[in-house]
Design a protein around this nucleic acid. Sequence first.
RNA 1: UCCCCUGUAGCUCAGCGGUAGAGCAGCUCGCUGUUAACGAGUUGGCCGUAGGUUCGAAUCCUACCGGGGGAG
Length: 403
Amino acid sequence: MEVRPITFEVIKRQPGSLARAGVIHTPHGDIETPAFVAVGTRGTVKSLKPEDLERHVGLQLIISNTYHLFLQPGHEVVQAAGGIHRFANWRFPTMTDSGGFQVFSLGAAFGKGVTKFAKGDVEVQSSYQGLNVYSQALASEHGKLCIVDEDGVTFTSHIDGSMHRFTAERSIEIQHAIGADIIVAFDECTSPTADYAYQREAMERTHRWAKRSILAHKQNYDAQRRQGLYGVVQGGRYPDLRTESARTLAAMDFDGFGIGGSFSKADLGAALQVVNENLPEDKPRHLLGIGEPEDISEGVRLGCDTFDCVAPTRLARTGTIYVQTNDGPKKISLKGERYKYDLSPLDETQVCEISKTTTKAYLSHLFRSHEMLAAHLASIHNLHFIVSYTKRLRESILSRDSQ
RNA sequence: UCCCCUGUAGCUCAGCGGUAGAGCAGCUCGCUGUUAACGAGUUGGCCGUAGGUUCGAAUCCUACCGGGGGAG
């Protein structure tokens, strides 16, 4: 009998919605879902020690990046250390993103202020040609080279400008060396402004890469025993493409699925609905790079199990914290003058001792004086906030009377 | 007592004949698979004071006041 490193158990479904509570079993422990995943791109959740994540945040899963660890310090170093768990001294489950997102964030989107989310009405560029055409102008425009072709991606390092190439096989090979419990198939993330034709082209290419990622994974028997592989659903903002992508990937032998690509705030829900209706119920679904509390709430309702997002830690480092109000979660910028004398705790409704014992005035002072402790305390607070927010969504599913 | 240097935005300074700029601070806003302890925008000044030269002075001249240094 085949033993899979990653298995998923649905504990309870919420009637009338796609929401479910479950458990992902991994070689490094269980993940109770829905769960928020901390982002540790370079083998560190910025400003936090492993101990902080365990003791204050209650973290269950952390995601690192293949592209970043490949460039620095090099996946061979991580491998020599015995894998990411030993290298970073993380005892909990981990996953690595494939590096496919960098095709987008350092390529098409670089320096253009384009993010995963389109602002307001999306203006589709019918002239959008994607990145599959070699263009010197494109390279100089970005100051970086990032070219997608059928076989893979050629790009220059954002650190030293050196040239590299990723293919599906290469990404999987590097992720094997890094050794996270969950690894992700190499994919291409498109811009929200890309037109239908390009979205389809990129999606179909991602499907072909998905197939190759599975093959590459199966060829490493040792890794296959220890690491599970997720495929990534694409299709941009088009429901028919999303449906097609979900069905295509569902037919492949993945241990779980990532839902990637670009959205506009308005059609995130519609996309998740059709995707999760078409993904198998007995596999975990990870919503890549999202989100804010309201996005997670919607994602859970529509059947997503895990979420990663840089928002809690990035906001924390730049002076913004989440607080619970009667109207739900809210963000406040502590750098403002109005918190100078505010001696109330960051958020007394939280279980986290940092949140309860640190005052807004003190943290505001730390931010204004550029003390590094500011980033540390705020990161603990925000991560704890979003982790426990997601945990409460889980408890809410479990406590519903039904079935 | 004399000589030299210096006084421009809250701070540190640039501008040295055509009616003021920068960095930092301040304030506001933004961050959604991290090129991010970041980025964007923005409020502040009768240029020490009083005269003079000039079509025009923060810029040149004189005096005074404040600060720094040197000589005695």
